[in-house]
């Protein structure tokens, strides 16, 4: 299926996929960068966000409200999980943190299964975003273009928060040097809680935005989690720009390789990850001395 129109279609599609992956991965990477915790429940939070949005959408019928309510819900969930569980794990080894978030992920997935069953549920996009848009070289689902826009906008907001606000400065200072924040006399507890909330929201927000594209199931987070890992490994753990770059690269690989042999798309993704690890182990935009 190698042809110029198809190449442009797939390239564009790669952007759309990549932007979403970038958004989810940035949540994972911010949490790790600031708190030093690898959140294995991130995939479950992506899924949970989708379901939260679904419930809100069912009750209000408004997509915008669903996104808003779902995101807020995920902040609350994130903060709760941080307060009740994660907080006690900062001083414990990385491995314990990985284990506990792994467990939380299982619990979240099974809770959703208990509440909603295993049937797929999906959210209708707003009426104006339904249908397809001709883009000259291709016909593309309008809503997916909207997703690309939303994801890009959300990434911009995150960028603004991280690089232009006080809280962002603190978070980035924490990424550079976790001791620094203590020295600055900032209440680390509140920052950590907030960051975990924001990270959970990024995952959940992506989950809601993606729900009209890919119908939800309780297991929806599994594949996403692995892809997110690949993205941050390629981009560099703890690096926000790295997550964005890694996301876009992953999206393009998945899309463009499908033109040649789609069954090998996923493997190509892992091959690129291996290549990065061999040539630049800290990731494309990662710092040498982290992890």
């Amino acid at each position: 299926m190698l042809s110029w129109p198809n190449f442009f279609s797939q390239f564009f599609n790669g952007l759309a996929l990549g932007a979403l992956l970038a958004l989810i991965s940035s949540g994972l990477t911010i949490i790790y960068g600031t708190l030093g915790v690898l959140n294995l429940a991130h995939g479950a939070m992506f899924m949970l966000g989708g379901y939260a949005g679904f419930v809100a959408w069912q009750h209000t019928g408004s997509f915008a409200l669903a996104v808003l309510a779902g995101s807020l819900f995920m902040v609350v969930v994130g903060v709760l999980i941080e307060r009740v569980v994660i907080r006690n794990f900062y001083r414990r080894p990385h491995e314990d943190q990985i284990l506990v978030t792994f467990g939380i992920g299982i619990v979240l997935v099974e809770l959703v299964r208990l509440g909603f069953g295993s049937d797929t549920v999906s959210i209708q996009p707003p009426a104006w975003a339904m249908g397809v848009t001709p883009l000259g070289f291709l016909i593309y689902p309008t809503y997916r273009i909207v997703v690309l826009g939303i994801a890009a906008a959300a990434l911009l907001v995150l960028y603004f928060v991280l690089y232009r606000t006080r809280i962002g400065m603190i978070v980035r200072a924490g990424i550079e040097d976790s001791g620094m924040v203590d020295i600055l006399g900032i209440n680390v507890n509140h920052v950590f809680m907030l960051v975990f909330g924001i990270g959970a929201m990024a995952a959940g927000f992506a989950g809601i935005v993606n729900a009209p594209v890919v119908a939800l199931t309780p297991d929806a987070g599994d594949t996403i989690l692995v892809e997110t890992f690949v993205v941050v490994v390629i981009g560099g753990v703890g690096s926000f720009p790295g997550a964005v770059l890694g996301g876009l690269i992953a999206g393009e690989i998945l899309s463009l390789t499908s033109m040649v042999d789609p069954s090998y798309s996923e493997v190509m993704l892992f091959a690129v990850m291996t290549l990065v690890l061999v040539l630049r182990p800290q990731g494309l935009l990662g710092q040498q001395d982290r992890a």
């Binding site: 690898l38 890992f229 941050v232 490994v233 291996t274």
Partner: peptide
């Protein structure tokens, strides 16, 4: 490949590589 990194990197890389094995 995987032991080039430690800690969380190592955990993530092993997850990803195992996926490749499953696919293959």
């Amino acid at each position: 490949i995987a032991l080039r990194r430690t800690g969380i990197y190592f955990a993530m890389i092993t997850v990803a590589i195992a996926e490749v094995f499953f696919f293959v």
